[in-house]
Design a protein around this nucleic acid. Structure first.
Lengths: 249, 249
DNA sequence: CGCCGCGTTGAAGCGTCTCAAAATCCGTGG
DNA sequence: CCACGGATTTTGAGACGCTTCAACGCGGCG
C-alpha cells in the first residue's frame, strides 16, 4: 500500500453540499451556515490512506462528504477490531478531545469537511442547532455500536457476513434506488481483510463464508467485489435477526 | 426468580442526591433543578426484577441513583448479549424515542430517578445545560461501547474475564478508596451467567476462566462473589490492553 | 514477463461450546 | 439448629467452529 499525498480540495458552497441535510450542520440556519463556512476547509484522501493515527493530536473535527472511512482499534500484538464505518454525513472526532482515540483510514477515496476544533467547540456553545444534531447522531451511533456488540458476541460467522452484506445493501439501496427492488447489486467497499476486522473474524473465514453464501445461492459474485442479492428476504433469513427487526421505529 | 412488586420511593431533594454532580442534571443551576423536580419521581426495583422489556412503551427517561442495571438484547433463539452496564448516574432511555430498544434489568436493588419523557424533552430544548451534559455522557457511552467491541471481537476468554474484573475493580476503587491501594477487594455484582452475557461467552467458560485466574494467583475468591486482587498490575497484564491504555486522557 | 496485492482453498490444531453430573450456596420450613 | 430444595457454580469429556499455517490462483502494473 503506497503512501499518497494529502490533497486539499477547493472551497465549496454549503448550499450545494451533498450531505447538507444529514450532517452535523443539518439543522443550521443560513446565518449559522455562514459562520461554519468561516472555519471549514476540505481535505481529500486517496483509498488506503490513513487520515489520522490513534493518539495523534487532532485539532479538527469533520464530516465525511463522499467516500468511506473506518475507525479501528489495534492491540499491542496486532489484533485489530474495526469499531466504526463512516459513511457520507457521518461525524469524525469528539468535541473537547484533542487527540484521536482510534485510527481513521480512508477505504475509498474520501473527502471530508473539516472544522477547526476550537472555533467549532465555541460555536457548539452558542448554536444549539449544532449540539442538538450532534446528540442525535451520537445516539444513533450508540445504537449501531450496540447492535454490533450483539453481532460480535453472539452471531456465527455466516450470520456475521450476512448481516454485513444486509447493512451495506440497505444503505446502498437508500442512495441509489429509493424503491425496494427485489434484486439489488452493489460494490463491496471493503476488502476481505477489512470485512474480517469489522466482523471479528479472520480473512480466511470471511472468504470461506462468502463462498458458502454463493454456493447456497444467497448471493452471486461478479469478480471479487460486485455482489448481487437475488432475494433480500433470503439474505435476511441468514442474519439471525428478527424478521421484523430494524423496520419498526 | 419470583416477581416482585414495583415500589415507589418517597420524594427526595436534588440537593442531597448522591449523583447530583455526575448525572444528566450535573450542570443544572438551582432554578433548572427546581424545574426538574417538578417532573421527577423515584422508582425502586428489587434485584432480578425487569425494569422494562425491549419494544415496550417507555414514557420516561431516568438516571440510575443507586444499584446496577443492565441493557441486554435477545435473539429469537434465545442468545443474549448485554450491551450496557448501568451504574449510578448513568442515563436510561432516549429522548425522542417512545419505546424501549433493549431489555433493562435490575441486577441489584435499584433506585432510579425518572422524568416524564415529554416534559423532559421540552426542557432539553430550553435548557442547554441538560443537552450538553447528555451529549457528553452519550459520547462516553459510545467510547465504552467501542472498547467493548474490541473485547467481544478480538479478546480471548481469559482476557475478557480479566478486563471485566479490571473495570469493576477500578470503578469500585473510585468510590470506596480514592487512593490506589495495591490490593483491592470487592463484591461481584453479576452472576456467572450475567458475566457470560456481557462477555459473549458461556457461563461454563466464565467459571473455568475464573478458576484459572484463581489457580494462577491473579485473583482470590471468598465465597463465589467476593473477589480480591492482590496485584492490579498482574491483572492488567492479563487483559491484553496496552500497559498505559486508559490512563492517558 | 514477473512481481505483488488480494482472494480462495485445504488440512490440522485449538479454544470455546455443549451436554452432563456433581458440588456448593442460600433461603425456607420443620 | 438442622434438613431440605432450588438456584448457582464448578468440573469433566467430547464435539464443533473458527483459526492457523500453507499453498495456489488471479489480475493489475511496472
Amino acid at each position: 500500500m503506497s503512501v499518497h499525498r494529502e490533497i486539499r480540495t477547493q472551497m465549496q458552497d454549503c448550499g450545494d453540499c451533498p450531505i447538507r441535510h444529514r450532517a452535523v450542520c443539518a439543522r443550521c440556519e443560513a446565518d449559522e451556515l455562514a459562520q461554519l463556512e468561516q472555519i471549514k476547509y476540505y481535505r481529500s484522501y486517496q483509498a488506503g490512506q490513513t487520515v489520522i493515527w490513534s493518539g495523534d493530536k487532532m485539532d479538527f473535527v469533520a464530516s465525511v462528504v463522499t467516500g468511506i472511512a473506518t475507525l479501528t482499534q489495534t492491540m499491542e500484538d496486532g489484533r485489530r477490531q474495526m469499531v466504526g464505518l463512516l459513511l457520507p454525513s457521518d461525524f469524525v472526532g469528539r468535541p473537547g478531545r484533542s487527540y484521536a482515540a482510534y485510527d481513521v483510514t480512508a477505504t475509498t477515496d474520501l473527502v471530508m469537511c473539516c472544522f477547526r476544533r476550537k472555533p467549532f467547540e465555541e460555536m457548539m456553545g452558542s448554536t444549539p442547532h449544532i449540539a442538538q444534531r450532534l446528540l442525535e447522531m451520537t445516539l444513533d451511533e450508540l445504537d449501531a455500536a450496540r447492535e454490533w456488540m450483539l453481532l460480535l458476541g453472539r452471531k456465527t460467522a455466516r450470520e456475521k457476513i450476512a448481516s454485513l452484506l444486509a447493512i451495506i445493501a440497505r444503505r446502498d439501496a437508500s442512495l441509489k434506488q429509493p424503491r425496494t427492488a427485489a434484486t439489488m447489486t452493489f460494490d463491496l467497499p471493503l476488502t476481505r481483510e477489512e470485512m474480517s476486522d469489522y466482523l471479528g473474524l479472520t480473512l480466511e473465514t470471511v472468504s470461506r463464508q462468502m463462498s458458502a453464501l454463493k454456493r447456497d445461492g444467497i448471493i452471486t459474485l461478479d469478480g471479487k467485489r460486485q455482489v448481487t442479492i437475488p432475494s433480500m428476504d433470503a439474505l435476511m433469513d441468514e442474519t439471525g435477526d428478527d424478521s421484523d427487526g430494524g423496520y419498526l421505529v
